[in-house]
Design a protein around this nucleic acid. Structure first.
Lengths: 333, 333
DNA sequence: CTCTCCTCGCAAAACGTTTTCTCGTAGTAT
DNA sequence: ATACTACGAGAAAACGTTTTGCGAGGAGAG
């Protein structure tokens, strides 16, 4: 029978000929331990291949060095980028990341947030689908928490992108080109990011002379874009603002099949600047949401709470307009 | 001073008027406890909002209900898909997933695997970059572990895609179309998946009459494809087999700029069938690697080990050829 | 009426650490 | 030489559960 059990702190203590308290102190760099002794302990630990059990450590310390990220859909490129930025930033600070995919299910989102919080030091809610009220009610139990891409919240720092500003840039770009009749392909109509876009459009219509924007409810996925192609064409608009790049790409694909010339007959803009937005033909003009930076900022906000620094109340990153080939001066029939 | 502390098992015991052992038994569905009493305990727990501390539970039970996934690059669509399939399958079985991005760094990969294993019940190594020897040496310490997309291993079940079979399908497709002079754009030249492709090519060249395949080392990213465009054209080949979809898309993009007609002048194939492979123009002919299923299979293999079922020694999924618009009969000058 | 089995309470050990408290010893100052 | 200080290290408590052993009480069966 070989001893398969992982060595414990007592084994190290025995080998080094000291008490187990001393081992703990030595391993944690406690300065009250004699350097020579500490070295002897470390040598013994190394010889045994000892590493303190994180679980036992977590129990007594009350912290797990782990945070949870709850995401509505792991398939969404934006969430993937947020997760990537978050994960790498957290790892750099010596933290681990628990990822939970709620699959757009509200109950699941609730359950996952609660469940993961119990085994972590905090949870980052990524664009939570739950209502404002539910969120406000749940937040205290989750604290410390960080909310990404939602409106201002009480009880948790919020980091997000300014979708209104992004939309304004798109509108400015389009109107500067000379477009007056636009279509807005709405996506998640209950989301805050949709309302921000809508408000920006409303403001532009109010201020701009002769600007018309027709709203068509599409969806958030590629297929949503292909599905509304004919309706879009029927409007006679010269440019269409898609809810996001996926929808824009879907629309673009459907229009290519219909032999509609983009951008000469119709300009199209996306939103997000997902990895492949640059590689469509024509490449997509879009408002780039700094998703990776969003993830990093979310981690920074969480880290600040965990280390009891002054909390970041709210941080908003501004998307940048990226003009590519899918927009141009409107055609003059 | 409000009591902010989470209720403990003793609080529930006190409220329900039973001993703390009974609470534990009741909460864990131990059949030796009277159903009525169990219900009373559960009611008390619900009233207090009690949930057993997973950390304390993990310590005594010796399991965390969590597994770790170590991934070389969270930006890679294939790994994202594997993570997604894995995460959802694990969640369905009541497990949590710790994700670690090694950023293609070998030392980091080692460190992360070891570190995450300590706080989880097992680790899934996703296409580990470390050498065969290092892997074999590390695996015992990680057990239970699952390896994804590597050659057969001792000490851990392996799930993976049959890249050789995928390559054979591509070659068959291309030769059936009439192509004889091909270029293979090699990617990660040290990887097992590369060698599998190479072997399939070598076999085809040996068997096929008049088949020539020139190998050019490119890379694994979009830019690698754009970079070798001129060299590819200089070969005079009629079809090019890219290492993966990313490289194929990069090449396609560069060729479009050079006004090379794909597929009429040059056929291109990818590998993986990443989400956007269907949306390039022309859409990409590729060998679809069932990445989500790979993730699910990896979880199944892990779950089997955790529940002491008969372990899955090795599972190989076969890619399916997806013929789209980027391949055609070679042009006859 | 007694025997037995079932249910439950109680107490305590165990999981593997960190941390507080306490004590012994060595060094320093008088 | 003695007393006081300071420092290093050991013993024990604590973290919040699960689990085991044992005993008590009640109910049902013979």
């Amino acid at each position: 029978m070989a001893r398969a059990a992982r060595p414990g702190i007592t084994d190290v203590a025995k080998l080094a000929g000291v008490s187990l308290s001393t081992v703990s102190r030595a391993m944690n760099g406690n300065p009250t331990v004699d350097p020579a002794l500490a070295e002897r302990v470390r040598a013994a630990a190394a010889q045994l291949g000892y590493t303190a059990s994180p679980v036992a450590r977590s129990l007594v310390l009350g912290r797990t060095q782990t945070v949870a990220v709850v995401i509505p859909d792991l398939e969404n490129p934006t969430f993937q980028a947020i997760l990537r930025g978050l994960s790498r930033a957290a790892t750099a600070d010596g933290y681990h990341v628990l990822v939970a995919d709620s699959r757009e299910d509200l109950d699941e989102e609730h359950a996952l947030a609660r469940a993961t919080r119990l085994r972590t030091d905090g949870v980052i809610l990524c664009a939570p689908r739950m209502s404002e009220d539910e969120l406000a009610e749940m937040l205290p139990a989750l604290s410390p928490a960080v909310v990404v891409n939602r409106g201002p919240q009480v009880g948790a720092p919020v980091v997000g992108a300014d979708y209104g500003a992004g939309m304004r840039q798109i509108l400015d770009h389009l109107t500067a080109l000379g477009h007056r009749r636009l279509v807005y392909l709405a996506g998640a109509t209950r989301s805050v990011t949709h309302r921000a876009r809508q408000a920006a459009i409303a403001a532009a219509v109010r201020d701009g002379e002769g600007l018309e924007v027709e709203e068509i409810t599409a969806g958030v996925a590629f297929d949503s874009g292909t599905a509304v192609a004919d309706r879009v064409l029927a409007t006679g608009a010269t440019a269409v603002i898609a809810y996001n790049d996926l929808v824009a790409m879907g629309l673009l694909s459907a229009l290519t099949i219909r032999r509609v010339d983009v951008p000469r007959q119709l300009s199209i803009t996306g939103f997000d600047d997902i990895p492949f937005a640059a590689y469509t033909s024509p490449p997509l003009t879009t408002a780039a949401v700094p998703a990776v930076e969003l993830g990093e900022a979310a981690w920074a906000a969480m880290h600040a709470q965990l280390t009891a620094e002054e909390p970041t109340p709210m941080l908003t990153l501004t998307p940048t307009l990226i003009v590519r080939g899918s927009t141009a001066i409107p055609h003059s029939d």
